[in-house]
Amino acid sequence: MKNSQLYKGSLNTILMKLLEENGKMYGYEITQKVKEITKGELKITEGALYPALHKLEAEGVLEVEVVQVDNRLRKYYKLTEKGSAETVNKLAELEEFIKNMQTIVNPKLSY
């Protein structure tokens, strides 16, 4: 992940936001989607993505669905009711964070 330390804390929020917009998604699709949206600037590594998804699933934020595609099984993730509610909070938190960072980095903007 580019500038991984900066993005790390927001990985869950990124995943939840993507799932909120796209309904259900599978792991590989998520990596591709992030790459596409950020035009290759942000790459979610496989070693970070799956642990994050599994953790959110265990917490009841995400639920899974398995579908047979071609000759293999595909595991889809989607937000639970609890997850949808939490996404709203997480996004608000992130926006607040961005706002504060802007104020610190570029104080003129706050006037």
């Binding site: 496989e46 799956y50 642990p51 599994h54 953790k55 265990a58 917490e59």
Partner: peptide, 12 residues
Amino acid sequence: TVVEQRQKALSK
């Protein structure tokens, strides 16, 4: 890493 984290998530 994926295996370990999966174990952790499931024990939780």
